[in-house]
Structure formats: structure tokens, C-alpha cells
């Protein structure tokens, strides 16, 4: 299993250059059965990352481009009247895929955004009173532009909370940029990628992640972090219990990826920015800056 993980990270690194940590975080989110939100300016490789992951995992992949006039039916699907059989047939929308890339999610209206809510949380879709299960595994990668850009609807807090992680990609460093500029077309490269981790293997790993051991000492530290967010004046709003659970879930996946069977404080710290950054609503768009005070909380 560890081989597959390393191979996957290695292959992704060949497509998206110089972003090893972000790729690992994205994979970690996936292994923890969470949804991922990538936030950055256009053109830094958000879509490419999503596409690469889907390809390497051999999952069905569909992209939904969110626009200001997109409707829930465009995402979930709709019943269409079949004139031949004289009945309504449900035509599943793009959400019925294993990996859904919701591109520029904050360009859509809140109504359309909320259509994704049930799908993300319940792994099912209800259209016209009928509930349809979504395929397994189900993984939403959403990208969004920084909300100060023109024509964006900031995601409501409830929906932000449903993303296990939010990551920022940022510009590549000079060496990576140079290779990128000199290299081949990325899209063509993606097409040639092999399936490194088939869905069965992924599900097995996802299960193994839940078995990672968490000691009392670590829970103490985790609680100290949560309590700090609630009591410190740095944050207008502390971590919710769901936030705490998410933190632990992500840390388990991170520990698993590092080939450990128990979580250590470094695992929590590694995923802290991605998991807690968007939940603390500090007004600071940079997650690393947001959680800087948290990283000063004593471990013992």
C-alpha cells in the first residue's frame, strides 16, 4: 500500500512541479475520505491537480464549471420526459461521478452551491423526492478564486466546514517554473498517466487509515489545540467539534502516509493549516498565517 502511495505522489510530482507537500495534502484528504477545496488565483494548476489525481486513481472524473447562472439541476441531473415510453426518466448530472471537480465554485450563486451540500455530506442526491446514492468512492475537489475577485459569492460557512481541507497552491519556485516552461504540454502528459491505485486499493487504504492508533497523550494535545482556538482572542470563532474530528481524521491519514501506525504531534501540525485554516474564519486568507499562534501551543 505504501508503495502505491509513494508511486502516486511521485507521478503527480512529475505533472505538478515543486508542490510535493500540497500533493501529499490532497492525497491525505482523499485517504481520509474528505473533500478538498483548492483556493488560488487562476492558472496555478488547481484543475491540473484534480485531473491528475483522478487519473492516477483510475476514477470516473467529471468537471463542473460553476458560473453565475448555473442551476442545481445542472449539477444534480433532472427528470426528462421520454416521449416514446411516456414516462419521466432521471438523467443523472455530473455529480454522479467518483471525482467531481467543481471549478470556480464561488462563481455560482448560493443556490447552486448548496446543491452540492447534500451530495458532499450524505454521499447521496435527492431529486424530486427520490434519493439516488452516489458512486463510491466519492470525492469533491472544488477550486475557488480568492473572494476579493470580481463576480464571486463567498462560500457560506456551513459549506466551507464540509471541506476537510483547504489548500493554496501558490506560484511554483524558480527551478520548477523553469522545468515547466521547458517541458511538455501538461494535458498531454496527464493522458499518458497509468492508474497507480485502483479504486479497490484506495478503499482498502481508506479503511486502514481509520485504524491508525491515537494515544491519550495525542488526544491531550489535540484538545489543547481545540481549546486554544476557543479561548484565544486571535479567533472570532473556535473550532467546532466537527472541526476537531476532521483534524484527527486528517492527521491519521497523514500518519498512515508516513508509514506510522500511530499519530504523532507532527502529523497534527502538518495538516493543521489545511484543516483548520478555513474553519477559524480569522479574516486572514492565508492559512499558514492564521494558524501560526496555534503552532505555539505546548505539546506536553
Amino acid at each position: 500500500m505504501q508503495n502505491a502511495i509513494n508511486q502516486l505522489v511521485g507521478s503527480a510530482n512529475q505533472i505538478i512541479l515543486g508542490k510535493d507537500h500540497k500533493i501529499r495534502l490532497a492525497l491525505c484528504c482523499l485517504l481520509a475520505r474528505g473533500h478538498l477545496l483548492i483556493e488560488d488565483i487562476p492558472g496555478v494548476g488547481k484543475t491540473t491537480l484534480a485531473h491528475t489525481l483522478a487519473k492516477l486513481l483510475g476514477l470516473h472524473y467529471q468537471r463542473i464549471q460553476f458560473t453565475s447562472d448555473i442551476l442545481p439541476a445542472d449539477i444534480l441531473g433532472a427528470s426528462v420526459f421520454d416521449a416514446k415510453n411516456l414516462e419521466f426518466n432521471f438523467h443523472p448530472g455530473p455529480v454522479f461521478n467518483q471525482v467531481v471537480l467543481a471549478d470556480e465554485i464561488n462563481r455560482a450563486t448560493p443556490k447552486a452551491q448548496s446543491a452540492l451540500l447534500e451530495a458532499m455530506e450524505e454521499h447521496q442526491v435527492t431529486v424530486e423526492g427520490k434519493t439516488y446514492p452516489l458512486p463510491q468512492p466519492f470525492f469533491v475537489i472544488a477550486t475557488q478564486n480568492p473572494s476579493h475577485q470580481i463576480g464571486t459569492f463567498p462560500l457560506p460557512e456551513s459549506q466551507l466546514d464540509r471541506f476537510l481541507m483547504r489548500i493554496e497552491l501558490g506560484y511554483p519556485d524558480a527551478a520548477a517554473e523553469r522545468t515547466l516552461l521547458a517541458g511538455e504540454n501538461r494535458h498531454r502528459l496527464i493522458e499518458t498517466l497509468p492508474v497507480v491505485m485502483p479504486p479497490e486499493a484506495l478503499q482498502k487504504i481508506q479503511h486502514a487509515v481509520t485504524q491508525v492508533f491515537v494515544s491519550d497523550a495525542l488526544l491531550d494535545y489535540c484538545q489543547a489545540l481545540i481549546v486554544f482556538t476557543r479561548e484565544s482572542s486571535e479567533y472570532p470563532c473556535g473550532l467546532s467539534p466537527r472541526g476537531g474530528l476532521a483534524l484527527l481524521r486528517a492527521a491519521k491519514a497523514w500518519a498512515f502516509m508516513a508509514q506510522r501506525d500511530a499519530v504523532i504531534p507532527e502529523d497534527l501540525q502538518a495538516v493543521l493549516a489545511a484543516v483548520a485554516g478555513h474553519r477559524l474564519r480569522s479574516g486572514n486568507p492565508n492559512s499558514d498565517a492564521t494558524i501560526a499562534p496555534l503552532l505555539k501551543v505546548a505539546i506536553h
Binding site: 504523532i264 504531534p265 507532527e266 501540525q269 503552532l295 505555539k296 501551543v297 505546548a298 505539546i299 506536553h300
Partner: peptide, 8 residues
Amino acid sequence: DVAEGERD
């Protein structure tokens, strides 16, 4: 540092 992980 008190907040530094043991491995780090």
C-alpha cells in the same frame, strides 16, 4: 520549543 514535535 514547547510546541516542537519530538521528531522535528
